[in-house]
Design a binder for these strands. Structure first.
Length: 570
RNA sequence: CGGAGCGUAGCGCAGCCUGGUAGCGCGCCUGGUUUGGGACCAGGAUGUCGGAGGUUCGAAUCCUCUCGCUCCGACCA
């Protein structure tokens, strides 16, 4: 591609509304353009990268035996009503009506559609297993879209769905996808981790997330420093371990704690270690309030309480709800005398003489003890894992890092097949529910994650497999005939050798061309200038390492081919 | 959903408090000089000041409503 024929509007300044590096650079490099909050156009350069990611995903899905199809963006409401998600999915589901007043939604994921397709064509165990996938635009009306392609409302996703007759078969399908995912992210040149995850709104029995490690990641990844265990913080197990305190039981004492809302305040006022204070959090679990006790120095994990109770939604109660059920204001809730089911994190059972809220304004209680002063419905692992916690699988310690979730695979089981009656007849002629799995990859997010992981102060640094162009030829002075001719000739030869090349043939000053080249981050840059042309040489510079070398004109094409082939082979 | 902030030229911003009919830098167009890391000189074009209503002789500026966008929070016990 010739720069002068291309559409590549780069920006010198960083647009004000971009916060993270990948978003800023994509805007500056003219890869994307925002049309509304969380809704973007892919400009030519951006689309090239998207296509690269798609192609790697497609190749690996095909290799793993999945078959490509394409489903509609507009989904009829009936299927969503049948699965129960029309009501359950909430405001994230963008709904609309057609001219006849029929309800539709923009597909945020396609379990309903694919299950409908499969149930109507699959009748016999002989037709299974099958795994169908698509690469398609999804729409989720996110509460807060942000960070460019990282969390858009409209985004491109690869979603695959497997259908099996047996548990073993379903596990095999899951395993194949897992392998395929590892290959995909390796081929993309990303540093990633596969972690155990909570299955969230999609549902199902177990799942793994693929996290690209980056500071700006929205997810916290817990991993063990000595074994391979890794999990999303929502899922990471906390070992139930401790020694029951032996201190004598103190009497309960009412203490005035004026204005003390936080554990830190209370700790100071009562002169108690935060680990001796117990927070009482009121949580609405499927609209029913429950109390959850967490040690003052720990953090509540809403996903864990939700899963413990087999609920579908858990959220912190509002100020009004708290006052209604505890009789006291926010910040002063406590378990004593509370008429709610009380769930407590395991750590609480080892405490004696706790400090808790008094369920009235400016009052806390000291010397509170289990059984004597209140009883707990059930103890469980209800807190977030933290750095330094022991690993449940070995003697190691947890460390935490941040990650960007680029892929997520779920073993669904029969959740959708049961609800939507997707059954098959087995060898004995008995009707059974099909066992499903589903597997997603955020295509745009993967591209953005790559930028988060690979950039410097000058711009993006594309790994060859994702690069929009493999080589950029910078012709320093196109008005000089010898230089221009040399550049054109090199361009022609590269095209002939199927190298993806961008020829910067603009009549601009060198500085502008170099700055743009660094911004766009094409891995291999060849500079054709008057000095080199006179000697029959060009300069080769790698964007990643910055290595620069002078190469005879005669060797440059084979040298580039060699480097590209080597990078793509791995 | 709660909180905060911002909408003025393609981009980045100033002007608003204290009302008088819009400006700076970059970019863009023309001509010239330049040409190995975002050049210089001269000339030029570009705005329903997000929208609607109100106050006023007069509104980018004050008031009301509205739309859009961004950030933070949703861990508060």
């Amino acid at each position: 591609m010739r720069y002068t024929d291309y559409f590549l509007p780069t920006l010198k300044e960083t647009p004000a509304d971009a916060e993270v590096v990948s978003h800023q650079l994509m805007l500056r490099a003219g890869m994307i353009r925002k049309n509304a909050a969380g809704v973007y156009s892919y400009l030519p350069l951006g689309l090239k990268v998207i296509r690269k990611v798609e192609e790697i995903v497609r190749e690996e899905m095909n290799r793993a035996g999945a078959i490509e199809c394409l489903m509609p963006v507009a989904n009829p409401a009936e299927l969503w009503q049948e699965s129960g998600r029309w009501d359950y999915y909430g405001k994230e589901l963008l709904r609309f009506k057609d001219r006849h007043g029929r309800d539709f939604c923009m597909g945020p994921t396609h379990e309903e559609i694919i299950t409908d397709i499969v149930r109507s064509h699959v009748k016999s165990y002989r037709q299974l297993p099958v795994n169908l996938y698509q690469i398609q635009t999804k729409f989720r009306d996110e509460v807060r879209p942000r960070f460019g392609l990282m969390r858009g409302r409209e985004f491109i996703m690869k979603d695959a769905y497997s259908f099996d007759t047996t548990e073993e078969g379903a596990n095999t399908s899951y395993h194949k996808m897992r392998e395929a995912y590892c290959r995909i992210f390796e081929r993309c040149g990303l540093k990633y981790r596969m972690v155990e995850a909570d299955s969230g709104a999609i549902g199902g029995s177990f799942s793994h997330e693929f996290m690209v490690l980056a500071e700006t990641g929205e997810d916290v990844v817990i991993s063990c420093d000595s074994c391979s265990y890794s999990a999303n913080i929502e899922k990471a197990l906390v070992v139930d371990r401790g020694e029951r305190a032996t201190a004598a039981l103190n009497p309960v004492e009412r203490v005035v704690t004026k204005g003390a809302h936080t554990v830190a305040d209370v700790s100071k006022m009562l002169n108690l270690d935060p680990a001796q204070i117990v927070k009482t959090m009121i949580v609405m679990v499927d609209e029913t309030p429950v109390a959850v006790l967490i040690r003052g120095d720990h953090e509540l994990n809403l996903a864990k309480i939700k899963n413990l109770l087999g609920a579908s939604v858990s959220e912190l109660a509002t100020v009004e709800q708290i006052e209604k059920v505890t009789g006291g204001p926010v910040g002063f809730s406590g378990p004593v005398g509370l008429k709610l089911p009380i769930y407590a994190d395991n750590a609480v059972k080892y405490l004696r003489n706790m400090g808790v809220g008094g369920n009235e304004k400016d009052i806390h209680l000291e010397g509170v003890n289990l059984e004597r002063d209140f009883s707990v419905t059930r103890f469980a692992d209800l807190r977030n894992a933290a750095a330094g916690d022991p690993c449940p699988h070995c003697g190691g310690r947890y460390v935490n890092t941040r990650g960007i979730e680029v892929g997520h695979i779920f073993k669904l089981g029969t959740k959708y097949s049961e609800a939507m009656k997707a059954t098959f007849l087995d060898a004995e002629g008995k009707s059974k529910d099909i066992i499903m799995g589903c597997y997603g990859i955020g295509i745009g997010r993967t591209a953005a994650a790559s930028i988060e992981q690979n950039h410097d102060e000058h711009g993006m640094i594309w790994p060859l497999p994702l690069a929009p162009f493999q080589v950029q030829v910078v012709v320093l002075n196109p008005k000089d005939d010898a230089v221009r001719t040399a550049g054109e000739e090199l361009y022609r030869q590269l095209l002939e050798n199927k190298v993806e090349v961008l020829l910067d043939d603009r009549d601009e000053r060198p500085g502008i061309k170099f700055k743009d080249a660094d911004l766009i981050g094409v891995p291999l840059r060849v500079t054709v200038g008057a000095r080199g042309v006179a000697e029959g040489t060009v300069e080769l510079k790698e964007r990643a390492g910055g290595e620069q070398s002078v190469v005879p004109m005669a060797d440059i094409v084979s040298r580039l081919k060699q480097q590209i082939d080597a990078a793509l082979a791995s």
